[in-house]
Design a protein around this nucleic acid. Sequence first.
DNA 1: TAAAAATACTCCATAGGTATTTTAT
DNA 2: ATAAAATACCTATGGAGTATTTTTA
Lengths: 296, 296
Amino acid sequence: MELRHLRYFVVVAQERHFGRAAARLHIAQPPLSQQIRRLEAELGVQLLLRTTRRVELTAAGERYLERAQAVLAAVEAAGNEAVMVSLGDAGHVAIGFTGSATYEVLPALARALRRDLPGITLDLKGEMLTPDQATALLEGTLDLGFLRPPVRESRLEVRVLRSEPLIAVLPEQHPLARRSVLRLKDLRDEPFIGYPSHRRSTVHEAVLEACDQAGFVPGELQEVAETSTLVSFVAAGLGVALVPESVRHLQITGAAYRPLTGTTRRVELAAAMLAGPDRPALRRVLERAEALFTGD
Amino acid sequence: MELRHLRYFVVVAQERHFGRAAARLHIAQPPLSQQIRRLEAELGVQLLLRTTRRVELTAAGERYLERAQAVLAAVEAAGNEAVMVSLGDAGHVAIGFTGSATYEVLPALARALRRDLPGITLDLKGEMLTPDQATALLEGTLDLGFLRPPVRESRLEVRVLRSEPLIAVLPEQHPLARRSVLRLKDLRDEPFIGYPSHRRSTVHEAVLEACDQAGFVPGELQEVAETSTLVSFVAAGLGVALVPESVRHLQITGAAYRPLTGTTRRVELAAAMLAGPDRPALRRVLERAEALFTGD
DNA sequence: TAAAAATACTCCATAGGTATTTTAT
DNA sequence: ATAAAATACCTATGGAGTATTTTTA
């Protein structure tokens, strides 16, 4: 059976007249009759009741008409969708991100995409550290990662979106919170809260470097896995922390953010994907992300 | 475009190899390559990435594969369903019924159909009087009616399913309710509750005839539209009523049913449909109903 | 008897086959 | 060097056209 049979049947069912249907299909009446008969023979079901005066649908024909129309519409839609996918106007992108991307970059991107590319759906795979994202990207589990360079993996295409300074988070009640700007070395005797050191966290290393630059090594390092936990711990008065500036957008009662002097260390946020041409939706998302974040 | 293109594409996508796909399709490799290229040209989208070493799907191809498989399955299903409909194993039947069919005939039929013909769905159009059902059947609003003969409409095919005596309903507290069997003439001075007389209700006429046979005319006739209302009114002590025996299955606290002597008047329950051959599901439902109800 | 579907046949477009070339690893 | 897809060309199936017959309201 072929789509031709469905197309012909639908028109005959609509016109209830072989002659008119044939005219609409730009073919002669006899071949139309033949094709319909062939369809009925193949299905083993009579779809039409014909007399020379009128053509009617059988109950089976009635149902088959609905189905046939649905199939033809689906074929059409499939073609259109394929074009959309090839242009990057439709598709699915699995995204991984570091904790600090959660609070500004992702929401802004999701909003922009919903507005400009509504055919693209995002699958947010959740907070993942840079090396885990690199692995997932290579495996194909992830299409796009928002991570913190450096990435030691040449097969990945990495584009830096922005560079941000580190800022301090400290309890609102803390005496140092009264100042609007802090010198990093003022924090030298505070207990620190940070990301796990055994996983290779870029921010963790940046924090150590910054402290080194300010002439001290942070003591009493409490380690937490997620950014929201980290800020909550600070709010609870368990210590202070250094985080990338964009974490500011995570407002938690009892925690105060303050700019820092005394270190030039910055951290970069980058988008990474597997090199290779055929991911149009992914390209579009990446383009949109670059436009959004490298612009300012 | 034709289903052939979809079928070929699906196999190539599965095999990721034109040669093997061609073998599975029992055609040679060159025409297969041609058909796939034609498909891509018609869609305006590249679906496959071919090198001489391997065939891969593009993102658009990936999506098109899913859609194509769905379409092919739908075409298959449409054919099967058409056969089912033609055999009466699938379909839809709109059913009308009189109040007194609601409490025994319909539930039993619905149960039997669910078990034996699960492909058939019933659309229960609700309680309708016999003449309204006849009109609806002729209009095509209804496929099958459970009604009380006579039906004065020759285009309808009517089959009597059962004949039942009239029984009395009276308030449980009523002195006559103490007897297990009533003589109809004992009810001569009671207020009666019955179906509307202005609509041509068969039961209404049967009640009048029965009373006539017992030598009286019921006085103080309170009219209600639905059987459940009627029995509730009786339960509330507003009067007595005569109803077909099967209404017994409608148990309402405060109402008692009692067999009657003193009249031979019975009422029939029949199934009615528009004569004409092509309603297989309807035929099957009717057959099932006859087997269920004329058997006992 | 007239309108419309079915039948009989003819033709040609194109799906499919065969032989060969091109290409990428 | 080789496996596999693409190209070139040929064949033949079957879709579509024309002429005619059959059917039924």
